[in-house]
Design a protein around this nucleic acid. Structure first.
Lengths: 359, 359
DNA sequence: TAGTCTTAGGTAAACGTTTACCCTGGCGCC
DNA sequence: GGCGCCAGGGTAAACGTTTACCTAAGACTA
């Protein structure tokens, strides 16, 4: 039925003419324009563009099409492709706070790795808020994202709904909330907590303290539990009075330290849930004139790249932020390529103790 | 012609049946499903969804539609809308390095503000590379982004092409490269550089130095020139020997400081192009046993939020990162709403000197 | 009462792709 | 010579929306 073909052709011709007359911004060329210029059908152009079924076109045809594409500076519109295939080339990165050095390092790694497999990253700051997380989860579904990279998941109704809808979610750093499950990439926080305890034990610190993060976060909880359990196993004192908790911010670390260091007797070493909290604790130590680490040793978590320059007094757990990206990329590939290869359920990254002792 | 209607209906019915049998993941509901359930036409559903021409539906119809939407958990697919309107709800944020504290603070602000006007942000790390910048520029055009927020533009052929294609670009922090123009949001770097000079003059520092950034970046260049010119105006010495340049990294700042502080005589104060470079310079001072700021005063730029805690010795220019987002949002609105309101060509944000002097 | 306006809503085309299917001509095989 | 097969490529439907246009029925006016 050439009617349809004719209509299309006409519409295009009209537009081309309008452009010629108006002399304004050139309307973006479509696949039809390319087909017309190359003297082939749109199907052929599509095949060339997608390098798919390329054997179905003779070399000379391919060349003609390529030439036309170059001449028109043709770029296939994503929306058309998405609508047709019902698959986008987008992933969403949900992140508590891009301002946090550790998270932004992970974001960097993710963006790089994901781009390599030809996806674009939508940045979503959740601010640890369940409502925001849900809003994003909803919106991302309507974008047909290929995956949601959930860095620092929090419990929320929308998360359960999304999981029920089979939205492909990869949990990063923090495992899925209780009752849910899904692929995870991150370190073994429990083991890391234990490692800190072992270090403290080796140092013969007799009285140890802890400033832990929110215990609803598996990451915070496990690193604290590993630390606590290992210490208990070695009969090193971790008194309730030497434990404080808070949010993973500098201010929160400061407040906790204010309480922890008020009396005469104080812990010889404190394990903080992340570097930021350790910075806050450090501030308090300085106010009290306590030398770090000689009088009070602080141990952080994440290893902010700035530590080397600005916090040479801080020992910490190095989390390999640059390996998050490749790991999630692997998972994304496994998820979309349903070809047998099972999606790995967990990718555990190695961590490393970084010991610093400068004044 | 009910044939078309019938076809659609049939297709849907088939799918629904398939789902019922397979019991697998429910296919996402479409606008047709909603229309069918509510007993109205798709046009009506669309009107309700878009709150557009809402007066064209009676309250009872609107209620019916809303109910159906809720029951089906319907979320309109972006791709359909984009294809039809040829407008997306996406903006691209091109950023040299999300890992840099200043840039990530700006990214945070942008994401927040842009989300408020219902856009999603695509994160693109350019790493200051012209090639990467061009690759992104291309890709973003095919995404039909509503705007490209170009933080730290670098010269590149693709940038010129994109500008010629009328891609709406907002230059942030760094102005458009020579020969190009476009809306800009950022501070008056020249004035900021002058302000630092004025401060040094007031402090009666007699010998001043500078570690500047890449001079092809308008931001780096202007802040250096403002500083240099103002110093010259007050006949304060800024000898060529006391000037070094480099990339905006800690390591680069360190190297520059190594050269600047090697001899016996040395500048009393050094203006660094950003905080990171100042951190590097600080490290060198410590190695040389020089007290900061008592023996060597360091001045940075950007005001990393960590400074307060980790670098109390660093005076700096506070750049209001949280105001970038609202500013670009305003520009984006002006760009898309072609209704008379001219796009402001420049939004200058206020800066502020932050003076710190702790040991 | 005929004409005009408004209100409420339906119809179908169009956006740019991809891809299942169809077609045609040439070649090898029996 | 009839047959199947393959390579190369075209046709048109379909993806889910939005929206210009159409319609029908009531309300108002002259």
């Amino acid at each position: 039925m050439p009617a349809s073909r004719g209509l299309r052709g006409e519409a295009r011709a009209k537009r081309a003419k309008a452009v010629a007359f108006a002399g304004g911004a050139r309307a973006a060329p479509t696949i039809d324009d390319v087909a017309a210029l190359a003297g082939v059908s749109v199907a052929t152009v599509s095949r060339v563009v997608n390098e798919k079924a390329l054997k179905r076109a003779s070399p000379v045809t391919v060349a003609k099409v390529r030439e036309a594409i170059a001449e028109l500076d043709y770029r296939p519109l994503r929306a058309g492709r998405v609508l047709r295939t019902l698959k986008s080339h987008l992933v969403a990165l949900l992140i508590p706070d891009i301002t946090n050095a550790f998270y932004s390092a992970v974001a960097h790694s993710v963006e790089l790795a994901v781009r390599e497999i030809d996806y674009a990253t939508i940045l979503c700051n959740t601010d640890e808020s369940p409502d925001l997380q849900d809003a994003y989860l909803n919106e991302m579904q309507s974008h047909l994202v290929r995956g949601v990279l959930l860095l620092g998941a929090v419990e929320s109704p929308g998360l359960r709904r999304a999981a029920a809808n089979r939205l492909p979610i990869v949990y990063m750093n923090r495992k899925a909330p209780p009752g849910l499950s899904g692929p995870f990439v991150g370190i073994d926080n429990y083991a890391a907590g234990q490692a800190v305890a072992v270090h403290f034990i080796r140092q013969r610190y007799e009285r140890c303290g802890a400033i832990h993060g929110p215990l609803h976060s598996s990451a915070s909880r496990e690193r604290f539990e590993g630390y606590r359990d290992r210490l208990a196993g070695a009969s090193v004192e971790l008194a309730a009075a030497d434990i404080r908790g808070g949010r993973l911010t500098i201010e929160s670390g400061y407040s906790a330290a204010v309480e922890l260091l008020d009396g005469g007797a104080r812990p010889r070493a404190i394990f903080c849930a992340n570097d930021a909290m350790a910075y806050g604790a450090y501030q308090r130590c300085r106010e009290l004139g306590l030398k770090v680490p000689d009088e009070v040793a602080l141990f952080g978590f994440d290893d902010n790249p700035l530590n080397q320059w600005l916090a040479p007094w801080l020992s910490t757990i190095h989390v390999p932020h640059d390996r998050f990206g490749p790991a999630v990329a692997r998972m994304l590939c496994a998820i979309s390529g349903q070809n047998g290869e099972e999606t790995p359920h967990t990718i555990l990254l190695p961590f490393r103790l970084v010991l610093r002792a400068s004044a």
